[in-house]
Nucleic acid binder design. Structure first.
Lengths: 160, 160
DNA sequence: TCAAGTTAGTTCCTTTTTCAGACTGACTGT
DNA sequence: ACAGTCAGTCTGAAAAAGGAACTAACTTGA
């Protein structure tokens, strides 16, 4: 598996990793979800080197996750705004936040709490089945080769 | 933000990234969920260098995501098995797979299909609110500083 | 009008990580 | 005795990341 052709693998996880699976990308996206939009703001809140930030923003624009939108003509200045494709990464980030809350916490409690504006409650994100609505567990899922797949694979029962 | 102290940041996303946010770890975990357990099997299916595989497995054991279990005494041989903490990463991987299916597909269709053994249907994973059960969207979530947080932050309305 | 500040990068050099592949050691099966 | 398996380790080269100064095009305030 080559790192620079990961987005051509017949595996949706590989393709996602090709986009968000490097050292800074998910942290940049967290800032986007916290409404950070400008180069200097990303740089100072993440302490990422300017060079790498520049590269990562270009990559996210290239993959259609951020849009580079001018907000000043002279001098030319741009801000970076999540597209629909970028907004759709919210579940990925929330899944990681939730795992961190559950398994990487310290004695001080969780760093952030999330309130659902729809119901007004503090909540945790839960991954459910689109068909029956039940929470998903690895051992209850069976994998089939799809049309874009290479070969059949067994059931995704986790090593127990 | 330093890469090697990311797991001490007051941010659950950073802490999760400290564990699974490097070049190979999530791909190794995908193999674990596909019931791969042995060094040679990881190596040949991922084409990862043996050195890096060894490092990554050690790291996953150190963080309590895999257990190193002997299956042969002479010669000493071990296999790597997901712990509960590791199994709990399933939603992270499924969220990424689903995003890849939705946004990185090619003309051939999705590589894998998932069947929920509970209801028998092919499904997509959906992230919902633990309190009201509605699907989550970034713009409907408001963030508050929690006990382990540093400072208050605004609402997570995505840059629109 | 002139110096200082802001913003969005680029350039250069050093350090760290990753890659590719050979090598080791303890066995097994024939 | 000899090839093969398995789980790694070692080494040197290549790629990526880090740190910090520099550039370009303005704006602001004195």
């Amino acid at each position: 598996m080559k790192w620079d052709t990961l987005d051509e693998e017949p595996c949706s996880l590989s393709r996602t990793i090709a986009v968000v699976g490097d050292r800074w990308t998910l942290l940049i996206l967290r800032e986007c979800f916290l409404r950070v939009r400008r180069f200097e703001a990303f740089q100072s809140s993440l302490q990422i080197t300017r060079h790498l930030l520049s590269e990562r923003l270009k990559k996210l624009v290239r993959f259609g996750i951020l849009r580079r939108v001018p907000y000043s003509q002279a001098p030319k200045r741009y801000e970076y705004i999540l597209t629909e494709k970028g907004l759709d990464l919210y579940p990925v980030i929330m899944a990681m936040v939730h795992w961190g809350d559950a398994h990487m916490g310290d004695e001080r409690g969780r760093p952030l709490l999330h309130e659902h504006k729809i119901c007004g409650m503090l909540f945790d994100p839960v991954m459910v089945c689109s068909e029956c609505g039940e929470p998903l567990h690895a051992k209850q899922v069976h994998v089939h080769a799809g049309p874009g797949g290479k070969k059949a694979v067994g059931s995704v029962a986790a090593s127990s």
